[in-house]
Design a protein around this nucleic acid. Structure first.
Length: 280
RNA sequence: GCGUCGGUACUCAAGUGGUCAACGAGGGCAGACUGUAAAUCUGCUGACCUUAGGUCUUCGGAAGUUCGAAUCUUCCCCGGCGCA
């Protein structure tokens, strides 16, 4: 049986993925699945560079504005489930799904059918573990799951905590195994030379501020999203929050934020470097 | 002109006789990624030798003191401040 085909458009931030995806969609009767870990949140628009209704040019977009940033936390696993459902719906209607976004992990969760252990976040346990120091966490993991302890990042608390969480419930963290890929994919990567990308990032940042990005973050906070939460979203939400709390000046915010976005872009590059299927 | 404080690697900055190629931070480079992924985390970052390790050249410049100097002395150059 032939696998259904999907198109993936990926690339570093500020490379013009969204516009390109719309162009492609128009030509081939496609529908767009956004793969962006921050655009899923309602009210986070300017800061995430979410496409506007007008920019969509009538092409349906999915996985945008599906959860409130207020209390719920979103995760890859949820993304995977919801997006897969959408992809199937699109395929059923004989349209071509175009997955477009900058979150490598989210994209891979779809096209590589990454298996996620069915263990929900355990708030109480996490809080408990949060209080312990990192070596202690590692010791705990070593005790309950030697195998996972062997190859985990011993200094990465986030990973350690999650691993313990899984191991406590399942006895051990399941071995990662190769899964059958569900789709046949064409991966198109958008890229720019570093200097040019830097320029684009900077110009876009200034433009976003002019358009009211600071106000957007302020509004989110007023509507009940805590500073802590906003800071955890990273980049624009983190640094604008710092500024709004008077932890830095506006100039400092722009400088630090620009640098952070650039670092993020480099991390994205690292993620995709190993994927030889991408047509750049 | 006199006095005074300072000049350290790409940047900021610690060190103030040996343990110093020199703490730390930023930046740069490379990388990881099992339900937070715009998050989280790691390694390298004077030169040369393939790594361990070794060799060499560095702390404004020059000359000294010393077994040994980024650290002490003298002179010079540059900057801040004070007095003239």
């Amino acid at each position: 049986m032939q696998k259904p085909k999907i198109i993936v458009i990926l690339g570093q931030t500020a490379t013009g993925k969204s516009d390109f995806a719309v162009e492609v969609a128009k030509k081939i009767n496609g529908k767009i699945i956004s793969a962006d870990s921050r655009q899923v949140y309602k009210g986070m628009d300017l800061g995430t560079g979410k496409v506007t209704k007008k920019e969509m040019e009538g092409i349906p977009h999915f996985m945008l504005d599906i959860v409130s940033p207020k209390n719920k936390t979103f995760s890859v696993s949820q993304f995977q489930k919801m997006a897969n459902k959408k992809i199937k719906e699109i395929l059923d209607k004989k349209n071509i799904p175009i997955v477009c976004g900058g979150t490598g992990y989210y994209i891979d969760s779809l096209i590589n059918s990454l298996p996620f252990p069915e263990v929900l976040p355990n708030k109480k346990l996490r809080k408990e573990l949060e209080a312990k120091d990192t070596t202690e966490l590692f010791e705990i993991l070593k005790k309950i799951d030697k195998d996972r302890a062997k190859n985990i990042d011993t200094k990465n608390r986030v990973r350690l905590i999650r691993a313990i969480e899984i191991a406590k419930e399942l006895g051990k963290v399941p071995k990662l195994k190769k899964t059958q890929k569900e789709y046949e994919t064409i991966k198109i990567g958008l890229t720019f030379p570093d200097n040019e990308l830097k320029r684009r990032i900077y110009e876009r940042l200034i433009k976003r501020i002019k358009k009211g990005m600071i106000k957007e973050v302020e509004k989110l906070h007023e509507s009940g999203v805590s500073w802590k939460k906003l800071e955890s979203f990273g980049l624009e939400y983190r640094y604008v929050s710092f500024y709004l709390q008077k932890k830095m000046t506006k100039e400092e915010m722009i400088e630090k934020l620009f640098s952070a976005i650039w670092h993020f872009a480099k991390r994205q590059k690292t993620w995709w470097k190993r994927d030889k299927e991408i047509i750049w």
